[in-house]
Simulated assay, not measured.
Amino acid sequence: MGVYECTLAALFAAWLLLCVLAQLRVAAPRVAPRLGRWDASLLVPRYNYFAPVPGVHDYHLLFRTRTRGREFGAWQEVSTEGRRRWWNFAWNPDRRCRKRLLDLAKELAHRDPACADPATVLSVPYLMLLRHVCAQAEPAERADIQFLIVTISGAGRDELPQPLFLSRPHEVG
């Protein structure tokens, strides 16, 4: 082997070692911050196939409406499930919609669970969820709408849904 081949082999060996270290839970906290400074072209990937703490809750988005002079109605769930087709194992564009709703709900629930900060109702996650909920609701004359994010434990657990975020009522229509 010549100098060129040895240099190339050493470069690929170092790259492989950095990739392995970036994946290990023990080394990643020490390696990842340093890589962020030096890896501007993102040559060292970070794969997260298996989370260290798996998700044990499902997030659900609910809404309720009220018309003028009446009380709020019952909570209704916003459906994120489309019709499953045989090819969805390989190509499933609806998955992105469900993931987007999940990310927005988590962001709101962790940022301001009581909806006490006035800036929350102007935040992008809040406005996107409000827009989505308004599109799901049946149009009514001068209706108010409110949404709620809840978590439900996974299968095999008999826990009640836990509210994470309750929006303010908004006048629509």
Rank of each mutant, 00 (worst) to 15 (best):
T7F: 09
T7W: 03
T7P: 00
T7A: 15
T7G: 06
L8M: 15
L8S: 09
L8D: 08
L8Q: 14
A9W: 01
A9G: 01
A9E: 12
A9T: 03
A10F: 03
A10K: 10
A10M: 09
L11M: 12
L11A: 14
L11Y: 13
F12Q: 15
A13T: 10
A13K: 13
A13N: 10
A14Y: 04
A14N: 12
A14R: 10
W15V: 03
W15E: 12
W15H: 15
L16N: 07
L16G: 09
L16H: 08
L16T: 08
L17G: 11
L17K: 10
L17V: 09
L17Q: 06
L17M: 11
L17Y: 04
L18W: 05
C19W: 08
C19Q: 07
C19S: 13
C19N: 11
C19D: 04
C19M: 12
V20T: 05
L21G: 06
L21T: 03
L21K: 10
L21P: 02
A22E: 07
Q23D: 07
Q23N: 11
Q23T: 01
Q23S: 07
L24H: 14
L24G: 09
L24E: 10
R25H: 07
R25E: 13
R25T: 10
V26L: 14
V26F: 04
V26E: 08
V26Y: 05
V26N: 02
V26P: 04
V26T: 12
A27V: 08
A27F: 13
A27P: 07
A28E: 10
A28H: 13
A28P: 05
A28F: 02
A28R: 15
A28L: 06
P29E: 01
P29V: 02
P29S: 01
P29Y: 01
R30K: 09
R30F: 14
R30M: 12
R30T: 05
V31M: 06
V31G: 07
A32F: 01
A32K: 10
P33R: 10
P33V: 04
P33E: 00
R34T: 01
L35T: 03
L35D: 04
L35Y: 08
L35E: 05
G36C: 03
G36S: 13
R37W: 08
W38I: 13
W38R: 14
W38H: 12
D39I: 06
D39Q: 09
D39W: 10
D39T: 07
D39H: 10
A40H: 13
A40G: 12
A40D: 02
A40Q: 12
S41M: 14
S41W: 14
S41R: 15
L42Q: 15
L42C: 12
L42V: 00
L42P: 00
L43G: 13
L43M: 13
L43I: 01
L43Q: 11
L43Y: 02
V44M: 08
